[in-house]
């Protein structure tokens, strides 16, 4: 399968990355190259093989329900490009 310019546009939109028209062309070539490589995987017989979930052989650990964090709004906001009155500020969202 190869990726065309339109597909690049579609996935770039999904990934929220602006891509110029000429970059779409280049990327279509590069991404198709990568896909051509990974398509080798289709040749592997994986019938009856369960996908690997983790190389770690253990149960999911759980934590106690005790407050150990939070209460640091100034630290949470300190790196924000824009904040006001304790809130993060972004261009208006239209619903």
């Amino acid at each position: 399968m190869s990726i065309d310019k339109d597909t690049v546009g579609k996935i770039a939109r999904l990934a929220r990355i602006r891509v110029s028209e000429e970059d779409k062309e280049t990327l279509a070539g590069e991404l198709s190259g990568i896909l051509a490589m990974v398509e080798k995987l289709n040749a592997v017989d994986t019938k009856g093989v369960a996908p690997l979930t983790s190389v770690v052989q253990m149960k999911l650990p759980m934590r106690a329900d005790v407050v150990t964090d939070g209460g640091i709004p100034e630290k949470i906001l300190q790196n924000a490009p824009e904040h006001s009155a304790g809130f993060f500020v972004v261009p208006k969202v239209v619903e």
């Binding site: 990974v38 995987l41 289709n42 592997v44 994986t46 093989v49 369960a50 996908p51 690997l52 979930t53 190389v55």
Partner: peptide, 14 residues
């Protein structure tokens, strides 16, 4: 076709 197949092959590699 891609992601799950890769995870299956990963199991074989392991």
């Amino acid at each position: 076709a891609y992601y799950n197949q890769a995870r299956r092959v990963r199991k074989l590699i392991w």
